[in-house]
Amino acid sequence: MSLLTPDPGLLFWMILSFGIVFFVLAKFGFPIIVDMVEKRKAYIDQSLESAKQANEQLLGIQLESERMMKETREEQVRILKEANEIRAKIINDAKDQASVEVHKLLEENKLVIQKERDAAMRDIHNQIAILSIDIAEKILRKNLDNKPAQVELVDKLIAEAQQN
């Protein structure tokens, strides 16, 4: 059964070649490959992890910005509303003030006009009085020449005065 008995020569060559193969590959072959693959694996894992984190951060930022946008929009609406209110108020105030002002002016004007009319009336009264005195003077001067006429006039005047 030569198949089952190891041949010493072949044993020697096998130990030699397997020993060399093992030494060379264990020193320069497999560790490098395995190390590099594991390094790459670690690198990929790390990259995935950081990508995940970045994604999460991005999501956070997006939510934040959305929240901020919403807030800003609300603020805008609020400000616009306030501005509208203020404007309306200002206009109303102005209107009120203007009408008050106008009213005052009208009153004043009325007073002035009244005064002036009164003054004018007084003036006219005075003028008329003066004129009537003048006229009366003139008439008297003319009519006092005859006596009856004087008496008649005095009567008349007395009558008038009584009537008044």
Binding site: V21, V24, L25, F28, G29, F30, I32, I33
Partner: peptide
């Protein structure tokens, strides 16, 4: 085999 593995390495 040595050449093969070392070329990969």
């Amino acid at each position: 085999l040595i050449i093969l593995i070392l070329s990969c390495a």
